[in-house]
Design a protein around this nucleic acid. Structure first.
Lengths: 266, 266
DNA sequence: TCTTGCACCTACAGTAACGTGAGGATGTAT
DNA sequence: ATACATCCTCACGTTACTGTAGGTGCAAGA
């Protein structure tokens, strides 16, 4: 035969794997060619080339070197290979989902930034965080709202993503501007009213009712809302939030009065 | 105020980031809270909590900590954020493509393993490698075949993936079995004929002609085929390949004779 | 008063899969 | 013989953490 061995350089050339990487594979016992006694140079035979191609193939499918070491021993048993591949596929599908979510969030954020220009970084963070944890938010909501109504709600939202994001940012900005004003000042009330009306565009009445009913029924003040806060941090400081709570409270009582008035008039 | 500072434990609890990781962020200068002079305990203020949420958000979008450190400084300039997000989106789209390719390969391999049971690991490797580098193969082919015909060809193939993979494996196995037999033995010739016919199911005549013409026209024996070998290693050993080359050569001369006979009879 | 436990601290080490570079030995062509 | 390419080993750097050991300060229980 013209040539029995390949030098490490040749192997690197042929396969595109760096010399250092071949050293490393030798070091960890993944691919251990014989060595020339005198020079210590590595001598790769054809069977090792084939093994290397197997390694490259497995690696390209996302397996770790440790896993590959096992798989190389088991390549005769096709059954364990099948298992490994199916598992690996599940893992990659998971990764796909996560990537899709990220791209989605990035798309929405990019649209928003293009549209709005400057955005308070805290508000932006809050939005991104919220978009990224939407699944968990939905899970949380499923405790209180039945899945069907929720699915419907999210479907509706899905078509108006960019509008809603913009609304969220704008209301947050305006609220931050008004922070500190008396809770019963007309500007504040006007904004809250506007905000409420805006939200009502997207929230079905039945969803609202179910939720309102639950809120009164359960004592979720402590435990559960804390969990939600963890899932979706607000864009406001503690101070702002305190003020905002008062605003809401005032608005609710006023709103309740008006409701009574309305129903009396009917 | 009831509470000015959060302890590291509280922050960890609130955000889900481990204490050790918070230590780490402090160490690398990503999030450096003040320290109590006496005890050395870290004291997180609300602004640092907000920063931490920003960090979490950016991290979930796939940014490195170094990049995040820069982004945190630039959060006021929305412009650089937009750039960063757009770049990040491109990166994630790339990753998506790569993942899709992997899942595709895994799916095909899984189907094949389910269908065939035992498969020679070298043949399997060759197939996987080939599936994973299909893009590069196509690029290589584009040098010789015009894109339109090629696209058409791949489209056709795409609908019959599993069949073709199975065919590839079976012909490879059979060829390996026959290795060593005389190149003009009837079994060998029958297999090659069968293989040729099988391939013709998928290769359009015009593609074949273009390619055949090119093969004669150019001297791509050396440079370019080496490149292809790098892209798609064969499932055969050097010895087997040598033998196979002879088989093909013999087949081609025989085929050429037959062609002449055929045209004479017409 | 002792000690137990808890939350916190620092500091060192280890992970995966290499990249990079130093310093020296070997192979090959002229 | 000399130049130059190629190879060797050794060892540190990278990313984003995680683990562990040994030590401090403080509050509650025996």
């Amino acid at each position: 035969m013209s040539k029995k061995y390949y030098s490490i350089g040749e192997v690197s050339e042929k396969t595109g794997v760096s010399v250092r990487t071949l050293h490393y594979y030798d070091e960890v016992g993944l691919l251990t060619p014989a060595k020339n006694e005198k020079s210590g140079h590595r001598q790769y035979e054809e069977k090792e080339l084939i093994t290397l191609y197997k390694i490259i193939s497995f690696k390209s499918l996302g397996f770790s070197l440790d896993r590959i070491k096992e798989l190389l021993k088991e390549t005769n048993s096709t059954h364990s290979l099948l298992d490994a591949f199916q598992l690996q596929k599940e893992i990659m599908l998971q990764q796909m989902k996560s990537l899709e979510k990220n791209i989605n969030t990035l798309n929405q954020t990019i649209e928003l930034l293009k549209d709005k220009g400057e955005i308070d970084s805290t508000i932006l963070m809050s939005l991104i965080y919220s978009l990224q944890t939407e699944d968990k938010q939905k899970e949380w909501l499923e405790q209180y709202i039945d899945k069907e109504a929720l699915d419907q709600f999210y479907e509706k939202i899905d078509t108006k993503r960019d509008d809603i994001n913009k609304g969220f940012v704008e209301f947050s900005e305006k609220l931050k501007e008004l922070y500190g004003k008396p809770v019963d000042s007309p500007e504040v009330m006007a904004l809250v009213e506007e905000c409420y009306q805006y939200a009502m565009n997207y929230i079905d009445e039945d969803v609202m009712e179910v939720f309102a009913g639950k809120v009164e029924a359960e004592d979720l003040e402590n435990l559960d809302f804390k969990q939600l806060q963890n899932i979706a941090p607000s864009p406001f400081t503690k101070e702002e939030e305190k003020w905002f709570d008062q605003v809401i409270e005032y608005y609710m009582t006023k709103y309740a009065e008006q409701e009574i008035d309305d129903s009396n008039e009917e």
